[in-house]
């Protein structure tokens, strides 16, 4: 393994709710939830970075509200797409959004995530490490929506993730084998994080880590990385590192950030490095990850769907 010398930095995820999501959110708030601010279960789609220009976003559309076990499951995703779960809190007023207990919500999500790490649920279903929350206020007079996403990352001041140089991959040798193996893993419907054997030719589930390492193998960690940067990994790796430390007792791990071109895993889009980290101390855990707004500051975002959804304005246009 190469020397791990630099603190690793991560690209935060980007939320992308579409117009259909907000229309459905408004309908649910008006007709079902009403003044109840109890969080509603929603789901989003994530995938590998698909191109060199933009990282993939956490996408939510009108189907985000469907029961996850319903007919839409396959269609909402498809090949190379994973469903992540989150909770939508529809605040009744703008003030309620501004004063929403963000720390409390974040801590609660963090505890839940840590529990899934410790009891093995996150190994079986690594999408749990991409859980999210969103608090939103729908102004149904102006049909504008103010919203704030959170993508919790388990962290602590002492848990510093270091890494060797982040390097690109080529389509030759072990790198090429790794990419082909990862493409097969994704095409066969595998989870969003997995392990790849040392020779790059075999992929297996995170649950096999302990048995394989006990047998002397040195598996590398691979995950569907939404980040397109050739210099950095995406956010998800933070929670995977916590899993590796807290669940597996690992202190170093080879990592492959798996990205795609034209819908298939492409070695030249992926990056690899070796990361190392201290023991994750549950006692000092903090949970971070509120999304920044369009100005790069802590704060909510606003989208104005104005006349396109306001029944009064639509009626006045219908001549």
């Amino acid at each position: 393994m190469a020397d791990a010398t630099t603190p690793l930095m991560f690209e935060p995820p980007c939320s992308a709710p579409d117009g259909g999501f907000w229309r459905e959110a408004a309908r649910v708030k008006l007709h079902e939830a009403k003044l109840d601010e109890t969080p509603i279960d929603v789901r989003a789609r994530v995938c590998c970075a698909q191109n060199a220009e933009v990282s993939s976003a956490v996408s939510l559309d009108a189907l985000a509200f469907d029961d996850a076990t319903s007919e839409g499951e396959e269609a909402a995703g498809g090949r190379g797409t994973w469903t992540t779960r989150g909770r939508l809190t529809c605040a009744n007023t703008r003030e309620a959004l501004a004063t929403f207990d963000r720390d409390g919500a974040m801590r609660a999500m963090g505890r839940e995530m840590l529990e899934s790490v410790m009891n093995g649920d996150a190994e079986r279903e690594p999408e749990r490490l991409r859980a999210f929350a969103v608090v939103a206020y729908a102004c149904l007079k102006s049909w504008s929506f103010t919203y704030w996403f959170a993508f919790p990352a388990l962290a602590s001041a002492e848990f510093k993730i270091m890494s060797s140089a982040v390097t690109g991959m080529t389509n030759e040798g072990v790198d090429g084998d790794i990419a082909a193996t990862c493409e097969r893993w994704i095409a066969s419907g595998g989870a969003s994080a997995w392990l790849v054997s040392e020779d790059g030719r075999e992929a297996y589930a995170l649950t096999e880590y302990e048995a394989r390492t006990r047998a002397g193998a040195k598996p590398r960690l691979a995950f569907a990385d939404a980040c397109c940067a050739m210099t950095h990994p995406g956010w998800t790796l933070r929670n995977l590192a916590v899993l590796a430390s807290a669940r597996w007792g690992a202190s170093a791990l080879d990592v492959v950030c798996v990205r795609a071109r034209k819908g298939r895993v492409a070695a030249e889009a992926c990056v690899k490095f070796t990361m190392s980290f201290p023991k994750f101390d549950v006692e000092t855990m903090k949970v971070v990850g509120w999304e920044r707004n369009a100005r790069g500051k802590m704060g909510p975002r606003t989208v104005d769907l104005g006349a396109s959804m306001d029944p009064n304005q639509l009626a006045s246009q219908a001549v």
């Binding site: 117009g19 501004a98 504008s144 103010t146 707004n293 369009a294 100005r295 500051k297 802590m298 704060g299 909510p300 975002r301 606003t302 989208v303 104005d304 769907l305 104005g306 006349a307 396109s308 639509l314 246009q317």
Partner: peptide, 16 residues
């Protein structure tokens, strides 16, 4: 006639 406008200006006065 139908707008679906993203408002880049967030509530500038709110400091978080």
């Amino acid at each position: 006639a139908m707008t679906l406008e993203a408002d880049a200006e967030d509530d500038a006065e709110d400091e978080y």
